[in-house]
Design a protein around this nucleic acid. Structure first.
Lengths: 404, 404
DNA sequence: GGCTGTTAGTTCGGATTCTAGTCAAACTAA
DNA sequence: TTAGTTTGACTAGAATCCGAACTAACAGCC
């Protein structure tokens, strides 16, 4: 049978420190507001806030002045200017380094355009290490201390081991990323982790969604491969061995064309980047020129569809149908509140969204699709790196007292 | 952004009381063992155990005697003989009432054979209420106090509202079960809840699995409909509106025959009870005689397959393929450690298991199916009622001090 | 200006709970 | 019998939360 860990006394304080800190991610508020929102008594809040201010994680802001009667409260807000998390996204065409301070504001950002797939994994790690070192130097100059680094990689990750099992988009197989970076960056480097890019996008989407009642989400990142980051009951769903969300090869239709994995009917063979391109244009068409930037190619496609080009419209409709089918399936299984479309869908999804929603409504067994809403991501290409930075900062939110 | 609830002081004690209690579900142990396993100091354990003994939830057992040096410990074990949870499964052909005491031992069990679908929902509730009253009377005679009642219903449940939205197997639609039972049973009845039978089966399977490292499971209950109970990271996955696990109508193959829901390609139209029966036998065959008990019909089928009957073997192979396909899909999404086949699969699954495993191994994208094992349930038809009783007992494990 | 009412935040003491140290008890092995 | 080991209880102490009372800082009104 199952048992869970007992809690010692210190963990109570840690939990409450973290609660206050996490609450303030949603914006500044007064001690009294914190007390009502957390349910903690005011003296406790005073004590917690005092400790967090002492740790340099919070600072007092201006007095709250809203014309209300009574003494105005002094706002307390996240400080953490001298603490940050680093997220590094290794994508097919770029390496993106992003450092966020505790308040979620970027304190460093740099994007290196590079065709990662064209080089050796070792070379890519060299490049990544250089980018991280540059970031570290800039942060040190500004007096900001990184508390962790998380890499976002589009592929199957063994997160506990720090190994990328298989990332076809960048041509990696069995790459010990964490070990490789640690040896390059030296022993003084903060903790390094790797995670699937879709999972990190999901984390970002979840943390930034406004509606406080959303705790179940599915975030799809569509490039050549399709992957999902799943948030369930406010937690990132990882599964037994961190493979959860590998939805690209879900068998949806045995009659369809074969997938790169050798099997038939995989979802990503129906809605992945290659599928939509092949449906929409002939091989020699400019939109299928892999040397052109992806955004430009989709801009062309978008234009064609708006002008009423029939082949483009048919292609979009077909992909929308298949996308809706897979989303309906995921909704049957997971019953999310929101499904977010990221990846290439952000470029062209506006033309498919209505149809996708229609399919989902019609296909999910729960009435009204279980209240599920399909939306487009608004985060752009920074989502994965941002999620990495958030994850790196997580240790601070888990145990604020530990930063010292 | 997201915030979670802060913890007050009392919750620490409650948590630790619950920890000790849950730990002891795994069998008796001495205070010193509890201390090492929970990480709590020995005096704390003494205090916690003392309180739990005072509450009548634990009792001291015999001295531990294992030939080791040193003073032998006195074993402490779950008592809770005078406390129980009641689980009631409302199935197509019976109403099963099961009361389990804290240690998980049955203290009352009664099964009423009845074709629930043939009567009005109100009549079924009358019958259920009578069964519960009989159970309550027997418990009162034995001096056992029920702390909660959970109904297991095969259908789509709005658990928070206590309403069964749709349960085709028993012909229910929009039945306010909790309200209906509470009004019939009177105000002195312990808290009543409803939950999907597959979810409750999953709970039972999870609590009874021996391997302490299994925290991600999918449990399939297959009758005419197919549903899944999903355990992820040790928690029952419910989704945003409690519809998670409604896998019966996942679209798997648009070419297949239509489902009762009107759509094509639903999983349960491929592997549900009707599907296997139609594949295996002609309409006038004895195995398709709905008046015969299900077990007998499957015994016949089993016999035929063993004797090498080709049609039966082909049917089993076909269903095994489709079952494997859906399980592979769920494994891609959820990456469970174990998939448990319940429902009718317990009768005939032994003949399909090897083939199912083969399909899953071949179809899941994660290497070695992400370590996922497909097994048959060994719990028989009591799983759902047992899960209900466990869920009813959960309040005790959550807050042991509250039983008084 | 001064009074009143209202809300914010702090101080203080008490209650609860965990925790470190100590010790008697109960047993095995030599 | 003696030495050694482990268990479980007792006590004192520390950390934390929490309720009540208190001060502080305003707005509105006379």
């Amino acid at each position: 049978m199952k048992a869970d860990q007992a809690r010692d006394r210190g963990s109570l304080r840690r939990t409450n420190l973290g609660s206050v800190l996490r609450l303030l991610r949603g914006g500044p508020r007064s001690r009294a507001q914190i007390a009502t929102e957390t349910g903690l008594p005011k003296p406790t809040v005073t004590s917690l806030v005092g400790e967090l201010v002492g740790l340099g994680l919070l600072r007092e802001g201006p007095a709250q002045r809203e014309g209300a009667v009574g003494r105005p409260g002094t706002l307390v807000q996240l400080d953490g200017r001298d603490i940050c998390g680093i997220g590094v996204e290794i994508s097919t065409s770029y390496v993106h380094v992003l450092a966020l301070n505790l308040g979620g504001e970027p304190v460093f950002e740099h994007r290196t355009e590079v065709a990662v797939a064209d080089q050796d994994a070792e070379d890519a790690l060299d490049l990544t290490a250089r980018a991280i070192r540059a970031c570290g130097a800039a942060l040190e100059r500004d007096g900001v201390r990184p508390v962790g680094i998380t890499l976002a990689v589009p592929g199957v990750i063994e997160a506990p081991a720090g190994v990328v099992d298989y990332a076809p988009g960048i041509g990696w197989r069995d790459v010990a990323v964490v070990e490789g970076l640690r040896s390059r960056l030296g022993p003084d480097t903060p903790p390094i982790a790797v995670e699937n890019d879709a999972k990190l996008c999901a984390l970002t989407e979840y943390l930034l969604v406004e509606d406080p009642d959303v705790h179940d989400m599915v975030c799809l990142t569509g490039e050549r491969g399709i992957a999902a980051g799943i948030i369930s009951a406010g937690r990132l769903l990882r599964g037994a061995t961190n493979f959860a969300g590998e939805v690209g090869h879900m068998p949806l239709d045995p009659e369809r064309r074969p997938c790169v994995c050798g099997r038939a009917g995989c979802w990503e063979a129906m809605v992945g980047l290659d599928a939509i391109m092949e449906l929409a244009a002939d091989p020699d068409d400019e939109v299928r020129d892999q040397k052109r930037p992806l955004e430009d190619r989709f801009r062309t496609l978008h234009l064609r569809a708006e002008r009423g080009d029939e082949r483009t419209s048919r292609a979009l409709a077909r992909v929308a149908d298949d996308l809706g089918l897979g989303i309906a399936l995921l909704t049957d299984v997971l019953n999310p509140r929101v499904v977010v479309l990221g990846g290439y869908f952000t470029h062209i999804g506006d033309l498919m969204l209505e149809r996708v929603r229609e399919v989902v409504r019609g296909r999910v067994i729960a009435p009204d699709a279980g209240g599920c809403q399909v939306v487009l991501s608004t985060l752009g290409f920074t989502a994965a790196a941002r999620g990495g930075a958030f994850l790196a900062l997580d240790s601070v939110y888990e145990d604020p007292a530990d930063v010292a």
